[in-house]
Write a protein that binds this DNA or RNA. Sequence first.
DNA 1: ATCAAGATTACCT
DNA 2: GGTAATCTTGATA
Length: 204
Amino acid sequence: MNSIYPENKLKKDFYTRELLVVAKELLGKIFVKNENNTPIAGKIVEVEAYNGSVDEAAHTFNGKTKRNEVMFREGGYLYVYFTYGVHYCCNVVTGKRGLGTAVLIRAIEPIKGIELMIKNRFGRDLVNEKEKFNLTSGPGKVCQTMKIDKSYYGTDLTEDNIYILDAPKVNDEKIVTTIRIGIKKSVGLPWRFYIKDNPYVSKK
DNA sequence: ATCAAGATTACCT
DNA sequence: GGTAATCTTGATA
């Protein structure tokens, strides 16, 4: 078997629930990509929620376009976008069809396939211990280490290429809630969630 | 056809 | 703390 622990894969009904419920519950879960028989996996430690019906920062706020089409599907798909001419970022689509809600995966803690992650991101070995925490501490970095680009747009997370494994729910007292990073609209919404004290979180 | 903005990162002072 | 890099998309004409 090429994939790891596929029997624990999250199913459709996990993703089709309400955005903020899914966002918080994604913390602690294991994000997995299988490629060329080499699984890459990391624990999700930081996320942000986006909701096009009330949130001006969401890519779906102004209605459906070719770019955001997958975000309007029902939960359980991967929404990948390209930004600043440089980086890809990936999101987990949530909720019912037509809502335009998704969770941005902002940081993971490497668990499996770490050698390949280092190669994908730096093209060389780590130069020091500190650099390890720069591997996946940001949404662009996550996509670079996992080699996720536009070709994964719309990936069905209930299939075998990219999926998320179940794991124990992170205790509420270990979840920090803040406003989101890097946006200029709807800045006050407290929709960023991360695992307290985890060294892979992008910013305090 | 043109144009401005962007859910970021790395590198500089 | 400031900013360059770099290009796709969506809006406007």
